[in-house]
């Protein structure tokens, strides 16, 4: 039988893969795609906990819905900023936006 632990383990591994991508990617588009994986891993964990543990209120599933909404908003704004970076620097490599780093 598939238990809640299986789903949580899958979402934890998925989150670790996305974290790896955010840390290693050198292209802003690829970084944003890795962030999408992170958000989906969290949504999967919320939804599976709701399906197994919360048969009345479905709070986790509502959280997953709002995560999808916020991810869509974040991605559209992120891509708009990325277009500005591309027009400003002619590239979307992460090296071109390191002027503000400490």
């Amino acid at each position: 039988m598939i238990t809640l632990g299986h789903f949580l383990a899958l979402s934890a591994v998925l989150f670790a893969i996305g974290l790896f991508g955010v840390l290693t990617r050198r292209n802003l588009i690829a970084v944003l795609m890795s962030v999408e994986i992170l958000l989906n891993a969290a949504a999967l964990a919320f939804a599976s906990v709701a399906a197994y543990k919360d048969p009345v209120f479905f709070a986790g599933q509502l959280f997953a819905l709002f995560i999808i909404v916020v991810a869509a908003a974040e991605l559209s704004i992120g891509f708009a900023i990325l277009l500005l970076v591309f027009r400003h620097a002619g590239s979307v490599a992460t090296d071109v936006v390191e002027e503000m780093r400490g």
């Binding site: 039988m1 238990t3 809640l4 632990g5 949580l8 383990a9 934890a12 591994v13 989150f15 670790a16 893969i17 974290l19 790896f20 840390l23 599976s48 399906a51 197994y52 543990k53």
Partner: peptide, 20 residues
Amino acid sequence: LAGAFLYGLWGLLGAPQTAF
């Protein structure tokens, strides 16, 4: 970092056997 994250989370995964 990803491995440390997984290691820290793994202890939480022993969920009881219930059906969804």
